[in-house]
Amino acid sequence: MMTLEYAGKIIDTDNEGYLLEPEQWNEEVALQIAEGESLEMNEERWQIVRIVRDHYEHTSCVIELRKVLKSLKEHSGADRATRKHVYNLFPYGYGQQACKIAGMRKPLKVLLDL
């Protein structure tokens, strides 16, 4: 187990840096996780992270990539709603980086990328 520190609080993560308690997430924590992933958060990355968080807050489940793509298409157009675009933003994968930055627990299945 590893930890992050935010505002004097210790936040537990698993050995890969995924939060153990997604409820401890906030945008400052996301910035720390992104820094650890060597990613600078820009508006396009934030958009995907916010889609993941919004879905989680309504369902307590992690959203699959195909549903993220559908949301991107509705809000940003078809040119941004592609797997290639998401992987350009998160080169190690949607489940490995976008979900981690969004404060999700490590997915038990990597079906998120389907």
Rank of each mutant, 00 (worst) to 15 (best):
K100S: 07
A102I: 10
G36H: 08
L20M: 12
V29A: 02
V52A: 00
E43S: 12
Y56L: 09
A78D: 15
G36I: 01
Q47P: 05
L31A: 15
L19G: 06
G103M: 00
R53I: 08
A102S: 09
E35F: 06
A7W: 08
T3G: 10
E57T: 13
K70I: 11
Q32W: 06
N26A: 07
E64W: 02
C61I: 01
L108S: 15
G93F: 01
S76K: 15
E57M: 10
H55R: 01
D12G: 12
R50F: 04
L19R: 03
C99R: 03
E37A: 02
V52F: 04
I48V: 03
Q32V: 08
L89M: 07
L72V: 07
R50H: 09
E21G: 13
W46D: 09
L4D: 04
I11W: 07
H55L: 08
A7P: 09
N15F: 09
D14I: 05
M1G: 15
Y92V: 13
A98V: 00
G93T: 07
E57Y: 12
W25I: 05
R66F: 11
K67E: 13
K106D: 06
K100E: 00
R50A: 06
Y87I: 09
C61T: 09
L19M: 00
T59P: 06
G103A: 02
H85L: 09
L112S: 10
Q96E: 14
Q47H: 10
E74Y: 06
K109Q: 13
L111Y: 13
R80D: 02
E44T: 10
R105K: 15
L72T: 06
Q24K: 13
K67L: 09
E21V: 14
E28T: 12
Q97R: 12
K73H: 10
E64T: 10
Q32I: 08
I51N: 03
L114F: 05
I101V: 04
T3L: 04
G8H: 01
Q24G: 01
E44I: 01
M1P: 04
I33G: 07
G36F: 02
A30R: 05
E40Q: 13
W25L: 04
L39N: 06
N42P: 02
V110I: 14
L111K: 14
E74G: 07
D54Y: 01
G8V: 00
C99D: 10
E74N: 12
